[in-house]
Nucleic acid binder design. Sequence first.
RNA 1: GGGGCUGUAGCUCAAUUGGUUAGAGCACCGGACUGUCGAUCCGGAGGUUGCGGGUUCGAGCCCCGUCGGCCUCGCCA
Length: 589
Amino acid sequence: MLRTKTCGELRASDNGQTVTVCGWVDKYRDHAGIVFIDLRDRYGKLQIKFDLAENSEIQQLARSLRYEDVIQVTGMVEPRPAGLENPKLATGAIEVLAQDMTLLNKCKTPPFEIDSSNLANEELRLKYRFLDLRRPELQELMILRHKLCKSTRDYFDELGFLEIETPIMGRSTPEGARDYLVPSRVHAGMFYALPQSPQLYKQILMVAGYDRYFQIARCFRDEDLRADRQPEFTQIDVEMAFVQREDILQTIDGLIRRMVKDLRGEELGEIVRLTHAEVMERFGSDKPDLRFGMELHDLGDIATACGFSVFNSTIQNGGRVRGLKADGAAEKYSRKNIDELTEFVKNYGAKGLAFFRVKSATELDSPIAKFFSAEDQAKIIARFDAKQGDLLFCVADTNKVSSAALGALRNRLAKELNLYDPKTMKVAWVLDFPMYAWNEEENRWEAEHHPFCQPVDEDIPLFETDPGKIRAQSYDLVCNGYEAASGSVRIHDPAVQQKVFNFIGITPDEAESRFGFLLDALRYGAPPHAGIALGLDRWVMMFGGSDNIRDVIAFPKTQKAADMMTGAPSDVDARQLRDLHIKIDAPAT
RNA sequence: GGGGCUGUAGCUCAAUUGGUUAGAGCACCGGACUGUCGAUCCGGAGGUUGCGGGUUCGAGCCCCGUCGGCCUCGCCA
């Protein structure tokens, strides 16, 4: 070992010890006769003192140190003079008087300063990820991620789960996200697909008798990125046999409580259970942020009879008029601000955004107030339980658009109005998702969750009459506006599975060719089983208070799925392509 | 595929209505300084304004194209 102590662990009780520490020069303060170096490693920072009177050779070397040089220092732990302790540092009560120093490696002048208070642009930081990862804030997130994995493994191990790895190179199956493909050298023209999730493997593990499985599994989806989506990401993947929905919910409740306990030392509050229909109605989103209220209200009855043609025609056409209330925000939002919000909701398909400032307990102030009778104005105010100074927003549109627009508006307003403490976590289950959704473009029914999800038994007759009403035995766990986990009871009857494939337009031949191995497995004594997968990266974000998934992944990709550090993806040798029987047919640039 | 924001010194930013030699802080280099901790003080060097075209007497600023980054809609069983 090149060191006897780390930079974060020395305290006043270590006074008098001779120690050897290693680390990076975080700061240097050169006073000629005395030089201070703040030495940094991932455990903390430590002040090293170089005193001319003690050793002039080391002193001269110390004066040449620059940011991010790597040094090894041997010296004596000393108390700092009274009044000169640094309360900002855990090691601030002491310093190390250097007796010997080795410059282990010089650092080129860094392209940006390792300083979270003045961040360089992200593109540059991603290119020099090895420098950005030195920031204590990112190191904290990596540590948090490790702890979350450890907590997960401990929890499942204690419950008798087995962590089993599944292949990265698998078979491409239809449905779902676009696959990342790996060409086969041995089988010309054939491809492996990277897993979008280990879904089929874990179900087959259930058939194989591994009734409690989990895996911290890398997943790949070739779709466009978002602030919370990377092309490769990590799931805590779970599956259990001989269980019902309730068993999964309770098992995962336990996991979340364990994580909160282990990472924050806190007891998590209630994990409420809501239905999909309820959250769409109350929050306009299937992943509502429950840290604040600001629920949606329906104005359909008032809209039908009011004098505002936009409202009553929307209702006549089968649409909805709904709205939400921003408490006391009437004066906080100028007409210009509201115009911006109007543009904002247009992104979600809304044609406009009606607003009312509440003038009194019975009167509204708005460009469209004249279309509403005194009676209607009072009704609207009562519906929102509004008071003077509140600001009301309404969207008149299809059910889907009004939900999307108001759901997004709700999140935006809450953020702007600081309606919640970003550190709190509000976790809830969303149950009873619809099983299928009609795909307008492809003119067919599509699985909302995935094709292996078991319908609610009593809804099965609806296949013949009203498939859109069939509820799935699926469940999402939402936290702070993120979809944090998603799962379902699976189909274990091959006949039901065949029926579902058929319903979503996969012919028996196709099902047999694409999913034959699963159907076959189901025919060989498949136990009833259910499972779920948690988005590990998102949980780290939530625990770490980050709103950017790149912060919680050591080597993330940019929005165009590129790695700025390594330059991936890249072209390859002609030889490699020849081996893989591949000819490039890219559009000319 | 669509919408929005963005690119000026190594970094973070500024630069009036299109107008002189594109500035500041930090970093870097040199010097001073024995108790600093965002050290301080003095001095210096540092620019293809992402790239390509256009308009103009004159472009960091306007126009067209292009490349990269970020947010977002679609997409993400």
